[in-house]
C-alpha cells in the first residue's frame, strides 16, 4: 500500500492500519532510542510515547519527507526532551590520538591483513574486533553514537539525518567526522588495553 493511501485511510478512521506504520519504522526508532537512552525501562516508555505522538499528529504530516524520517524526527525530539528532563547533556568528545598509534596500527594491520594466519584465527580476531568497536561506540557521546549508526548502519543520507536531528547538513557532516575520529581513537585505546 502507498504511504499516502495508508495515512489517509488511518485518518479516515481505520486506526488498525497504524500497526503497519509501527512495523515499518520501529527499526529506525529502536536505533535512535537505543543510541540516546541507556535505561531499558525508559526506552520502553519512550518508544510508546513516540508512536502515540505520531498517531496524534498524523494529520499534520505534510508528505515533504519520508514517513520514516518524520517518525525518526519525533523519536529524536522525544529522546532529547527526556535527556533534558533527566539533566543529561550531550557531552562533546575530546579524544586525542593514542600515543602509540603507529605501533598499534601496525599491529592491527598485521593481524587483519596477514595471509599467514590461519582462517579460524582471522575469524576469531575479527569477531573480537567487532566487539571492541561496539564497546568503543557505546562509550561515545549519544549524539556521536546516533550519527554513526544512522549513517553507517541505517544508511541514511545527510539530508535525512539533518531532518531527523534538526541540524544543518554541514553540522551533521562535521559531527560525523568528529564521531568517526573519536571512535577510531577509542578503539585503539581499547585495543591497546587488550593486548598489553
Amino acid at each position: 500500500m502507498e504511504e499516502k493511501d495508508l495515512i489517509n485511510r488511518i485518518l479516515r478512521g481505520e486506526s488498525a492500519l497504524f500497526a503497519a506504520i509501527i512495523k515499518q519504522t520501529q527499526g529506525l526508532v529502536a536505533q535512535i532510542v537505543f543510541k540516546l537512552v541507556k535505561n531499558p525501562e525508559d526506552r520502553k516508555d519512550l518508544a510508546q510515547d513516540i508512536y502515540l505522538k505520531a498517531y496524534k499528529n498524523l494529520s499534520t504530516f505534510q508528505f515533504q519527507s519520508k514517513l520514516s524520517t518524520w517518525i525518526g524526527q519525533i523519536a529524536y525530539n522525544t529522546c532529547l526532551a527526556y535527556l533534558d528532563k533527566k539533566k543529561l547533556v550531550l557531552p562533546d568528545g575530546h579524544d586525542s590520538a593514542h600515543e602509540n598509534e603507529e605501533t598499534l596500527l601496525e599491529y592491527l594491520s598485521n593481524k587483519t591483513l596477514s595471509s599467514t594466519d590461519n582462517e579460524t584465527e582471522q575469524l576469531l580476531f575479527r569477531a573480537e574486533l567487532a566487539e571492541l568497536i561496539q564497546a568503543a561506540l557505546d562509550t561515545l557521546p549519544p549524539m556521536y553514537r546516533l550519527l554513526i549508526t544512522l549513517y553507517h548502519y541505517e544508511e541514511l543520507s545527510y539530508d535525512e539525518m539533518s531532518a531527523i536531528t534538526n541540524l544543518p547538513v554541514g553540522t551533521v557532516k562535521n559531527y560525523l567526522f568528529r564521531a568517526r575520529k573519536a571512535l577510531k581513537n577509542r578503539l585503539l585505546k581499547n585495543y591497546s588495553n587488550e593486548i598489553l
Binding site: 488498525a16 497504524f18 500497526a19 509501527i22 512495523k23 520501529q26 527499526g27 529502536a30 536505533q31 537505543f34 531499558p40 526506552r43 520502553k44 518508544a47 510508546q48 508512536y51 502515540l52 498517531y55 596500527l105 592491527l108 594491520s109 587483519t112 591483513l113 575479527r126 574486533l129 567487532a130 568497536i133 561496539q134 561506540l137 553507517h152 548502519y153 568517526r180 571512535l183 577510531k184 578503539l187
Partner: peptide
C-alpha cells in the same frame, strides 16, 4: 584501512530490537 574496516559490513553490529511487542502495546 582501519577506517574502512571499522565501517565495513562485517563489523556492523546487530540492530537493536525492543524486548516487548511494541505494535500490540501501542495499538
Amino acid at each position: 584501512e582501519l577506517y574502512q574496516l571499522m565501517f565495513s559490513s562485517e563489523m556492523k553490529p546487530e540492530a537493536p530490537i525492543f524486548d516487548f511487542d511494541l505494535t500490540q502495546t501501542v495499538m
